[in-house]
């Protein structure tokens, strides 16, 4: 799958994590692109040096977990400038963040937290996405969240919120199919309605991963192969919104590289079938 390092190829990629850096750089497996967590490469030294080497061989997507687009505190300027510096250095094919918050007055919670989908929150997140895009001088992709709770104050669905956010800010959507599946099971979200709400043009990337269950609650643990139900939902989403670059995420109990590549090959097959 030859592709320029500067265009986002519509093929499968993998989340590249520390245990695989060495093997990937030594064996250079055939792989459309890789995605890494932005914050692990802030500053200099070995992490940045390694990512630059990876970048010589693969398109790289930067996936942030710390910007807190919905946080109730001012946008963290240092965090944003660290990300901006990393973008200038790596020239990623995509930059994404989550539709979530991680800070409130006096608190920082290093997690991806849901919030009530209100008009007020939509104004707030729109302003912040705009601010990030202006600083990075590029489009930001915003990812739908897997949640374990919902808020009775919500005035719209997450799908409505994302659709309007893209329209108002010009951001793209990173559609995490597993997150949608988790929300269907946990919160009774209507998958069909969600898919219909999402503007196909705005979708620039898909995520797939495995989850686990705790006392009846599905937790987005990325510690398992993609479940069949999620593959089915993925195929269904592709039929409606079209194929896009698709990432296999695996963050806990990370398997040997061939198993991860095998998961990516499965996604690749579905993308190709969809093209036919």
């Amino acid at each position: 799958m030859p592709a320029s390092k500067y265009t986002f190829p519509c093929v499968a990629g993998i989340g590249l994590r520390a245990p695989h850096y060495r093997e990937v750089l030594e064996t250079l497996p055939e792989l459309g692109w890789v995605e890494v967590h932005s914050e692990n490469f802030f500053g200099g030294g070995a992490p940045l040096h390694t990512l630059r080497k990876v970048r010589e061989h693969y398109p790289v997507s930067l996936h942030g977990v710390g910007m807190g687009l919905a946080s109730a505190t001012p946008l963290d300027e240092k965090h944003l400038s660290d990300l901006s510096q990393l973008c200038n250095d790596i020239q990623p094919v995509a930059v994404s963040e989550h539709l979530c918050w991680n800070a409130a007055t006096g608190f920082v919670i290093n997690d991806l937290l849901p919030f009530p989908y209100t008009r007020e929150a939509l104004d707030h997140v729109t302003r912040r996405v705009t601010q990030v895009q202006e600083k990075l001088k590029r489009q930001l992709l915003v990812e739908n969240l897997s949640s374990y709770i919902s808020f009775s104050q919500s005035e719209m669905t997450e799908g409505d919120f994302l659709a309007e956010l893209t329209q108002r800010s010009g951001c793209g959507i990173l559609f995490d199919v597993e997150n949608l599946y988790v929300n269907v099971r946990n919160l009774g979200v209507d998958a069909e309605a969600f898919i219909k709400t999402i503007p196909a043009d705005a979708v620039k990337e898909y995520h797939l991963a495995g989850f686990s269950e705790r006392d009846g609650c599905l937790v987005d643990t990325h510690n398992h192969p993609v479940y069949n139900e999620v593959w089915d939902l993925y195929e269904h989403v592709l039929k409606h919104l079209g194929p896009r670059p698709t990432l296999i995420e695996w963050d806990t109990d990370i398997p040997a590289l061939p198993e991860l590549l095998n998961e990516a090959a499965k996604a690749q097959l579905i993308i190709e079938q969809c093209h036919d």
């Binding site: 994590r17 520390a18 245990p19 060495r22 967590h37 932005s38 914050e39 692990n40 996936h63 977990v65 710390g66 989550h98 997690d111 991806l112 897997s146 991963a209 686990s212 705790r214 937790v219 987005d220 643990t221 990325h222 510690n223 995420e249 963050d251 806990t252 109990d253």
Partner: peptide, 16 residues
């Protein structure tokens, strides 16, 4: 090497 774990992840915690 393989034991090194980057701190940032977008996954939920698998262990209690």
């Amino acid at each position: 090497c393989s034991g090194s774990k980057s701190s940032h992840s977008c996954a939920g915690q698998a262990s209690k």
